[in-house]
Lab assay of single mutants.
Amino acid sequence: MMAYMNPGPHYSVNALALSGPSVDLMHQAVPYPSAPRKQRRERTTFTRSQLEELEALFAKTQYPDVYAREEVALKINLPESRVQVWFKNRRAKCRQQRQQQKQQQQPPGGQAKARPAKRKAGTSPRPSTDVCPDPLGISDSYSPPLPGPSGSPTTAVATVSIWSPASESPLPEAQRAGLVASGPSLTSAPYAMTYAPASAFCSSPSAYGSPSSYFSGLDPYLSPMVPQLGGPALSPLSGPSVGPSLAQSPTSLSGQSYGAYSPVDSLEFKDPTGTWKFTYNPMDPLDYKDQSAWKFQIL
């Protein structure tokens, strides 16, 4: 009977010793046993002879290597770790002494450095960015050149030099007046198309007034536009458009034309069986010896 009264063996659950049927240790109110408190290391007290050895090595170098620390530790009968900690504390003490010396050398008012006064946003004049500046400075420094007289040679050079070769001289006033084509001369031969040399188009003023001019072949195509416009036809070669000034309004060009419109200028042929003959000019830059190549039959 006494065997049943004795408590059973101890069981360990999660490293906790349980005594038989008792489960009081598993209750929430019972805390787990805490780790033992780490003991504080005792402070090391250095003797005068030990301090002399350490100070002598510190005077040589503030960062001794492990071999120098072990050698000193053997002399003063201390572990190497204590020597390492002593050098660490000695360097910190040396830095603190240097900072105190710097503070003593500075004057009393030198510690508080005078800061520059901050400028207020409204006091300083700042350039306004509302208006974009002129990058080319046209509004201040540029002045347009004065327009020359209508009959000045410089204007003629600016007008005619675009179309004339570089080897030719500017046309005088008398020749510029001949550039304007007359109405009857352009409409006299509506079906004849003559190819003149390129030099005649640039230099010869008579080429624009003769039936064999460069633009005589364009007349049949330009004249039928007159009834559609409801007024006189516009002429690209009329009046002052080739003269001194090219800047004319469309209203000033509306009254200039080749001449009176005639039914002869239409595109319809009077004789459907007729042929169109292209007159060959020996001055043509295209060297075609066979003139029969310039004739064709309209079917």
Score class of each variant (00 low, 15 high):
Arg176Cys: 06
Gly239Leu: 10
Lys88Asp: 14
Thr123Ile: 07
Gln104Asp: 05
Val160Cys: 00
Ala15Thr: 06
Leu186Asn: 05
Arg48Asn: 09
Ser245Val: 12
Asn281Ala: 13
Leu229Glu: 01
Ala92Leu: 12
Leu18Lys: 00
Pro33Ile: 10
Ala247Arg: 12
Gly20Ala: 08
Thr159His: 05
Phe269Asp: 00
Ser34Trp: 11
Ala59Ser: 09
Phe215Glu: 00
Arg48Trp: 11
Arg176Met: 05
Ser128Cys: 06
Phe215Arg: 03
Ser199Val: 12
Pro165Tyr: 15
Val23Glu: 01
Gly148Ala: 07
Phe201Ala: 07
Lys118Ser: 01
Thr123Met: 02
Lys277Glu: 01
Ser182Gly: 03
Ser216Gln: 07
Met193Pro: 00
Ser204Leu: 11
Gly148Cys: 05
Ala29Leu: 14
Pro263Cys: 11
Val66Tyr: 02
Glu80Arg: 07
Asp271Lys: 12
Pro205Trp: 15
Leu229Trp: 10
Ser169Met: 10
Val66Asn: 04
Arg91Lys: 12
Thr273Val: 07
Asn89Gly: 14
Leu222Phe: 10
Phe46Met: 14
Gln100Met: 06
Val264Gln: 01
Leu146Met: 07
Phe58Leu: 12
Ser124Asp: 04
Val66Pro: 11
Met225His: 02
Asp219Pro: 11
Gly217Glu: 05
Arg40Asp: 13
Glu80Thr: 08
Ala156Ile: 13
Leu246Ser: 02
Met2Leu: 11
Pro170Ser: 10
Ser128Ile: 08
Arg37Ser: 03
Tyr214Ile: 05
Phe58Trp: 06
Phe296Thr: 00
Ser212Glu: 02
Arg41Ser: 15
Val226Asp: 02
Arg48Pro: 08
Trp276Glu: 00
Thr155Gly: 04
Ser19Asn: 04
Asp284Val: 14
Arg37Gln: 04
Pro184Cys: 11
Gly122Met: 08
Phe296Lys: 00
Pro147Asn: 06
Pro125Thr: 04
Ser204Val: 09
Tyr195Asp: 00
Leu25His: 02
Val66Cys: 05
Gly255Tyr: 10
Val264Trp: 13
Leu146Glu: 03
Ser128His: 05
Tyr208His: 03
Lys102Ile: 01
Leu136Phe: 05
Pro36His: 09
Ala29Asn: 06
Ser139Ile: 03
Ser164Ala: 06
Leu222Ser: 00
Phe201Val: 02
Val30Tyr: 10
Tyr11Met: 03
Leu51Glu: 15
Val160Ala: 00
Pro153Trp: 15
Asp24Asn: 07
Leu237Asn: 04
Ser169Ile: 13
Ser124Lys: 11
Val85Lys: 12
Leu146Pro: 06
Arg90Glu: 13
Ser223Ala: 06
Gly255Ile: 12
Gln100Cys: 09
Ser164Cys: 14
Glu52Leu: 10
Glu70Cys: 13
Pro33Gln: 03
Phe58Pro: 14
Lys289Met: 04
Asn77Gln: 05
Ala35Lys: 08
Ala293Gly: 12
Phe269Thr: 00
